Simulated scan of single mutants.
Amino acid sequence: MKIVIIGGTGLIGSKLVAKLGEHGHEAVAAAPNTGVNTLTGEGLAEAMKGTDVVIDVSNSPSFEDAAVLEFFTTSTGNLLAAEKEAGVGHHVALSVVGTGRRPDIGYFAAKLAQEKLIRESGIPYSIVHATQFFEFGQRIADGATTGGEVHIAPVAFQPIAGDDVARNVGRTAAGTPLNGAIEIAGPKRCRMDEFFRGALAAWGDPREVVTDPHARYFGAELTELDLVPGDGAVLGETTYEDWLKTA
């Protein structure tokens, strides 16, 4: 199959290109630096020619509420229109666990708007809701730092390795459209504050992790199950400890 990966030069996209290629698919990386821009529409029509499946793992360069909403609605709208014109048979999108539970979080609201466009497009689709990636741990810790302390809420947390995300998204893309969503997560559930306490120690980072029920994540306070999947989620194979050995 010809599979076009939007955001194909990024963290998950590059892994997808490699994994799908290993399985005999024609995996095409599509991103602004390869001449495909979903915001402007540049290169989209050409990229869609002969395409069987489109995987969208692109992300907004800004996480500010208005900017991220504009990115996902504009990009997805242009992409779906090009897919429809070309007769693409399966649209796969990577989203976030918890979008439906916390639409008051700006980033989640933007992903929810993206999902609505996909569901209403008429194109067969699959949505993969993933938990936070191990690879973004440092970014999350930095965003939670105040005065040299990392303030983290004591809520459930179940992050996943990028390789496991790519593996599951690739399997979904190669299969029959779900016309629905699945959830994927890491193999271990823990408390978010405890995870970061252990992670910073493993990094040799001297910052103190402070357990703070009022700590904010994307600008909002979290409740216990906001970031973790429900029953039936597909679990990754890689623990954080094993991931650290190769990171």
Results as ranks from 00 to 15, higher is better:
residue 2 K to I: 05
residue 5 I to Q: 12
residue 10 G to L: 05
residue 11 L to W: 03
residue 14 S to Q: 13
residue 17 V to R: 11
residue 18 A to E: 15
residue 19 K to H: 11
residue 19 K to R: 14
residue 19 K to Y: 11
residue 20 L to R: 07
residue 20 L to Q: 08
residue 22 E to Q: 12
residue 23 H to T: 05
residue 23 H to A: 13
residue 25 H to R: 02
residue 26 E to K: 06
residue 26 E to N: 07
residue 27 A to V: 04
residue 27 A to Y: 13
residue 29 A to C: 05
residue 32 P to T: 01
residue 36 V to Y: 14
residue 37 N to E: 04
residue 38 T to R: 11
residue 38 T to F: 12
residue 38 T to A: 15
residue 40 T to M: 08
residue 43 G to V: 03
residue 44 L to M: 06
residue 45 A to M: 01
residue 49 K to H: 08
residue 50 G to R: 02
residue 53 V to A: 13
residue 56 D to P: 00
residue 57 V to I: 10
residue 59 N to A: 14
residue 62 S to L: 05
residue 63 F to R: 10
residue 64 E to N: 10
residue 66 A to T: 10
residue 66 A to P: 02
residue 67 A to Q: 15
residue 69 L to W: 00
residue 70 E to D: 15
residue 74 T to P: 00
residue 74 T to D: 01
residue 76 T to H: 10
residue 77 G to W: 03
residue 79 L to G: 08
residue 80 L to Y: 11
residue 83 E to P: 07
residue 85 E to F: 08
residue 87 G to S: 12
residue 87 G to C: 09
residue 87 G to R: 11
residue 89 G to Y: 08
residue 90 H to L: 04
residue 93 A to T: 11
residue 95 S to G: 10
residue 95 S to P: 09
residue 96 V to F: 15
residue 99 T to P: 02
residue 100 G to L: 02
residue 102 R to A: 12
residue 102 R to C: 02
residue 105 I to Y: 13
residue 105 I to K: 00
residue 107 Y to G: 00
residue 107 Y to A: 00
residue 109 A to G: 02
residue 111 K to N: 12
residue 112 L to E: 00
residue 116 K to M: 03
residue 120 E to S: 14
residue 121 S to W: 11
residue 122 G to K: 09
residue 127 I to K: 06
residue 130 A to K: 12
residue 130 A to S: 15
residue 133 F to Y: 15
residue 134 F to V: 00
residue 136 F to C: 00
residue 138 Q to M: 08
residue 139 R to L: 14
residue 142 D to R: 07
residue 142 D to N: 14
residue 143 G to M: 13
residue 144 A to G: 08
residue 152 I to Y: 14
residue 155 V to E: 05
residue 156 A to Q: 11
residue 158 Q to I: 03
residue 161 A to V: 03
residue 163 D to Q: 07
residue 164 D to M: 02
residue 172 T to D: 01
residue 172 T to L: 04
residue 176 T to S: 10
residue 176 T to A: 11
residue 177 P to K: 05
residue 181 A to P: 01
residue 181 A to N: 01
residue 181 A to V: 00
residue 182 I to A: 07
residue 185 A to F: 13
residue 188 K to P: 00
residue 192 M to Y: 10
residue 195 F to V: 02
residue 199 A to F: 15
residue 201 A to T: 15
residue 201 A to C: 00
residue 202 A to H: 09
residue 203 W to G: 00
residue 204 G to R: 04
residue 205 D to S: 03
residue 206 P to Y: 06
residue 208 E to R: 14
residue 209 V to F: 13
residue 209 V to K: 08
residue 210 V to L: 06
residue 211 T to I: 05
residue 211 T to N: 09
residue 219 G to I: 03
residue 220 A to M: 07
residue 224 E to K: 04
residue 224 E to L: 07
residue 224 E to A: 12
residue 224 E to Y: 04
residue 225 L to E: 13
residue 226 D to V: 05
residue 228 V to D: 11
residue 231 D to S: 09
residue 233 A to Y: 05
residue 233 A to G: 05
residue 235 L to R: 14
residue 238 T to N: 07
residue 239 T to N: 11
residue 239 T to M: 10
residue 240 Y to A: 07
residue 243 W to R: 01
residue 247 A to C: 02
